Computed example of a mutant assay.
Amino acid sequence: MSALQLPPVHLYTANAGLLAHWRHGLAGHCRLQGHDLWKPPAEDGSVSLIDLHLPGLPAVTRPELWQEACPPRLVACSAVPHDDEGVAALRVGFRGYCNSWISVDLLPRLVLAVANGELWIGRSLLSRLMLSVAVQPASGTFSSNWRRGLTDREQEVACLVADGASNKEVARQLGVAERTVKDHLSHIFSKLQVHDRVQLALHVHGVDAHHPAP
């Protein structure tokens, strides 16, 4: 893989083997800085990979401990990931949740995605979030205002995707090509200023984008 232009990355872990794994995947792509104790990074555009077993790290299940300690672009890394922990991490402001030992080939893509404002989560957690927001009652003004500026077809696509449909399922239901669905989604993301399907679902269902429902 050719070197990507990535922002600086902070690596928070006390596990020497894990630190070496992360460095192996990111070396040559960005400036790296290791930390074996928790201290919130400066809001300087960097991305942080955080081992959830790091000494002194507040538990993600204690949101009150993260109110002033969760700058943007943090990725929670767990040796034994599970959806409940992933939801908790997203609720306190993390922008990604993954296995600590994620493939070294995926590490640069993870950092790039989070740096660009996207969420990085697995399929199981994505499905859970999509289902949870689909059954939430609308709140605030998002649910009544998000349609403004979208064509009728874009609104149809947005509603189906927000309810968890894949591009292939949307294409089948609307009788269009999958490529057409992708084009519609690109326009929808741009118009609504969202970066991914989860943010779109939260937007459509009127759920605060920083606090997805458990």
Rank of each mutant, 00 (worst) to 15 (best):
R147M: 13
L90K: 05
S100G: 07
Y97C: 03
T180F: 14
Q33G: 07
W22P: 05
W22H: 06
H184Y: 13
L200Y: 03
A14W: 09
F142H: 14
L26Q: 13
D183W: 14
A79S: 08
Q193S: 12
P63E: 14
P137D: 08
H187N: 11
L54E: 11
V207F: 00
S124D: 09
L112Q: 10
V135G: 01
A165G: 00
R62D: 12
S144P: 01
R128T: 01
S186Y: 15
E43I: 05
R147Y: 10
A162Q: 05
W101R: 05
A59N: 03
V198C: 02
H205Y: 08
Q136V: 01
S139C: 02
S48M: 12
R147L: 12
L6K: 03
R23W: 08
H184C: 11
V75L: 14
S186P: 00
L200S: 01
D196V: 08
T61M: 00
W146Y: 15
S186A: 15
K168N: 06
L74N: 11
E178D: 01
V47G: 07
G175N: 03
N116Q: 14
V9S: 05
G149T: 03
V60T: 06
L54K: 13
L119D: 13
P137K: 11
Y12N: 06
R95Y: 12
T180N: 09
L6G: 03
P63G: 15
S78R: 07
A42F: 13
T141P: 00
P214K: 12
V75K: 09
L125D: 01
R23A: 08
L65I: 05
A134V: 00
H29M: 15
A59T: 02
Q173M: 07
L32F: 09
H203T: 15
V80H: 14
E43S: 06
N167E: 11
L107K: 02
H53Q: 13
C30Y: 10
G45I: 08
G206H: 05
Q193N: 14
G17H: 12
K168C: 05
G96V: 14
L119V: 05
H53V: 10
H210D: 09
V47N: 05
A69Q: 05
H184F: 12
G28S: 07
W101S: 01
S100F: 11
I102L: 08
L112Y: 08
L37W: 14
H24P: 01
R62Y: 11
